[in-house]
Amino acid sequence: MRIAAAPGVRAEDRPTPAVPNYGIDSDRLLDRDSLPAALRRRWDGRYAVDEFGGDPHLQDFLVAPVVGRLPARTVGAEHLPATGGALLVANFGVGLLEPLLVAGAVQRAVDRRLRLVGLPTVPGLGALTHKLGGVGRRPGDVAAVLRAGHLAAVPLGRTLSPRTAGEAPRLVIGATLGFPVLPVAVRPSGPVGLPVGGWVVAVGPPCRPPDGTATDDPLAAAELAEDVRRAVAAMLRGESGHP
């Protein structure tokens, strides 16, 4: 280890440390092992976990094939960043359908894994959801995920109707101020809200606070949260001018 020249290196200039992950990228999906090779790797312990308890090797094996096959069409995939941290804010209905559809869209568009915020944390089950890509609900934990350069999806408040957007996660958006926030709407593609022929995952352009905003400005966070909620609501209604 060496001491770098200047103090106060900005996060984006910092060289990414080469974490030995036994050839497994902790952010980007790679080719999968064959089943015997994967079992061998699990037996030998030659896989790594990340700070958030995620297990990229297990995710690629169990989650990626499932979410990759969900019937969904992605609109506005060009807004998804190929590198770096970003927060995806999506509407949330009953069950886990919406987060999984968003994960599938991200996987198809940019080949990256998505960390899901707010999965259930029952003892035993919590350990499994963490391994498969869930992260804690606390704002500080979500901020840590973004600082580490990953994509995280946080749900709007749960609603029963698939056409309305729930309350925005104001605290999480406040803690992650400075990172791009992408509004994401998941809507059934058929008429009158029926998933005939699958779903549409619409990704909007990133919302940002006005230039010069301090990273601990609660008012800016609240305004940004409202902007994002409105963008999701507009995309859910399928308004013109929105993807």
Partner: peptide, 12 residues
């Protein structure tokens, strides 16, 4: 960032 500790030995 602030102590310039680049290249810490990874946990693994």
């Amino acid at each position: 960032d602030e102590l310039g500790l680049v290249g810490l030995v990874p946990t693994q």
